[in-house]
Design a protein around this nucleic acid. Structure first.
Length: 514
RNA sequence: GAUUCCGUAGCUCAGCUGGUAGAGCAAUACACUUUUAAUGUAUGGGCCCUGGGUUCGAAUCCCAGCGGGAUCACCA
């Protein structure tokens, strides 16, 4: 790369050359067999001191307090930080040869380098469990200086790196220097593990279905379009996996699930990323009431596994995930929030209601969309505690079974938490003739100018004609669930590598390079 | 996509109504064999995001662009 190096970067390259001149490989190939972690030492040393007399430990050098012929330093391994104590006369027992300490340790080792040590655990005068190093080895030389974040005894961080652009583009650095960030992503994985265990224990089968689809079905959204060269056909990145999971229910699996990475070519903000993860699962012989019970049980378990309690702090609110959750129909929710009963209204009356509520509407909107608008603008944001909103109008739910008793409605619920939709579920429509008609209504909406209407998937209709058992299905937004559970206000903080515009500097260098 | 704020040393940030750059940490040198935001002394380090414009003179004012954040629109 033609990129100019900073003073510190030049210096580190010089040090690298000096190490090599001394016969030290800054990037050794052989394994360094670690036999302990920082976490293990801090947890167990006090009651099992004999076991920590002969240890091998490795980590990244985070700070050094040099005192002449001895030094304290902090190494960070994958678990946490550990203080080490290193003395010249331990490292260099030979009186005539102090090079390893005076030159290598003091001059050529930098913050950010990865080193391995041998030694024993002890407790310092001030009471900190530390490792007394008897030897050390450079395992990886770092050529870029690491931003240094200092933390005092009370845990206050100084000069913490907060620049979002730096943190998201160079997440690897963010993870090194901001332990809280690392913790969030460990929590994300724990949440997914809890879900997997819950579903597997219930008898579910985890499956993989196509990401490349010729018909982007199962949801309404603008897809990403790509092209397959060998077949010479357009392919879409999936916007949902719903129709494939239902094909598997047809195929005879009674409970399937998938953490589906979905792609939607739409706006980005702090709750939307072009690629995001939805957990979908489908269960034969169940209905949406069963699904509500299961969902609240699952969420309660996630909260308690993660926090040891059902109350979770989210911003300035406390959200209780203790089951059962409140249940209310969408019409009652609108009545509760606006005082207006829209349940018997036709399209014209609904338009009038929207006008009195000062909501922006246009001519392409049908009855369902008008109701959805009223709910979205006037109700959604008010449901902070977990609430199931149920029984939606049939027009806005083309894949949902009609309600068993209520004319014009479907057996569907959305789970609202902190004013946002977290999950969407229904008793799945399994009547192939009804499904065909619903698809055709969607096609008509598309004609009318609704660019969010669904494509018709004829293979899915064929599958339904073979017979899908009565089935309950749900999609849970994993990223948003993690935002709640980890108290993160932005989706970018629960995605390791959020989508970003490419860095101009780097692409330029790439061009000059080739 | 619209509005708005931001972009200065490796990092966190100052830099007023225009007079060609500062601090802390990090780095370098020296001292120090139980420190912990270690300490003390000294030193080096800048395409002030990019390109135009105004001006005798721009980090600073104006315009355009690039990148990021926030809010709104669309959506999950």
């Amino acid at each position: 790369m033609l990129q100019e190096l900073s003073e510190q970067e030049e210096l580190r390259r010089t040090k690298l050359a000096e190490l090599i001149k001394l016969g030290i490989n800054p990037y050794p190939a052989e394994e360094f067999k670690v036999n302990v972690t920082a976490h293990d030492i801090k947890e167990n040393y006090e009651r099992d001191k004999l076991n920590y007399k002969d240890i091998r430990f490795a980590g990244r050098l985070m700070s050094v307090r040099d005192m002449g012929k001895a030094a304290f330093a902090v190494l960070q391994d994958s678990t946490e930080r550990m203080q080490i104590y290193i003395r010249r006369d331990d490292i260099c027992p030979n009186e005539d040869d102090k090079v390893l300490y005076d030159i290598v340790w003091k001059k050529l080792v930098d913050l950010g380098d990865i080193i391995g040590i041998e030694g024993y655990v002890f407790t310092t005068k001030t009471g900190e469990i530390s490792i007394h190093a008897t030897s050390f080895k450079i395992l990886t030389k770092a050529l870029k200086p690491l931003p240094v974040v200092k933390t005092d005894a009370d845990g206050n961080a100084f000069d913490e790196v907060t620049d979002p652009e730096f943190r998201y583009r160079q997440r690897y650095v963010d993870l090194i220097i901001n332990p809280k960030v690392k913790k969030t992503f460990e929590q994300r994985t724990r949440i997914m593990n809890t879900i997997r265990t819950f579903l597997n224990d219930g008898g579910a089968l985890e499956v993989d279905t196509p990401v490349l689809q010729s018909i982007p079905g199962g949801a309404t959204a603008r897809p990403f379009l790509t092209h397959h060269n060998a077949l010479d056909i357009p392919l879409y990145l999936r916007i949902a996996n719903e129709l494939y999971l239902k094909r598997l229910i047809v195929g005879g699996f009674d409970w399937v699930y998938e953490f589906s990475r979905n792609f939607r070519n739409e706006g980005m903000d702090r709750t939307h990323n072009p690629e995001f993860t939805i957990l979908e699962f489908y269960v034969a012989y169940r209905d949406y009431y069963w699904m509500m019970n299961t969902t609240e049980t699952l969420l309660e378990k996630i909260a308690t596994d993660l926090h040891g309690k059902t109350d979770v702090t989210v911003g300035d609110k406390t959200i209780s995930f203790a089951a059962p959750f409140k249940r209310i129909t969408i019409f009652d929710a609108i009545k509760e929030n606006t005082g207006i009963d829209v349940s018997k209204m036709n399209e014209e009356e609904l338009r009038a209601v929207c006008k009195t509520l000062h909501l922006e509407i246009d001519e392409t909107m049908g009855k369902a969309k008008l109701i959805d608008t009223i709910f979205g603008e006037k109700c959604e944001g008010n449901y902070i505690q977990p609430t199931f909103i149920t029984d939606y109008p049939v027009e806005m739910s083309p894949l949902t079974k009609k309600h068993r008793t209520e004319e014009g409605l479907v057996e569907r619920f959305e789970l609202m938490i902190n004013g946002k939709e977290i999950a969407n579920a229904y008793s799945e429509l399994n009547d192939p003739i009804d499904q065909r008609e619903r698809f055709e209504e969607q096609a008509a909406l598309m004609e009318r100018g609704d660019d969010e209407a669904m494509f018709i998937d004829y293979d899915f209709l064929r599958a339904l004609e073979y017979g899908m058992p009565p089935t309950a299905g749900i999609g849970i937004g994993i990223d948003r669930l993690c935002m709640l559970m980890c108290n993160q206000p932005s989706i970018q903080d629960v995605l390791l590598f959020p989508t970003m515009r490419p860095e101009a500097k780097l692409t330029l260098n790439e061009e000059t390079h080739s």
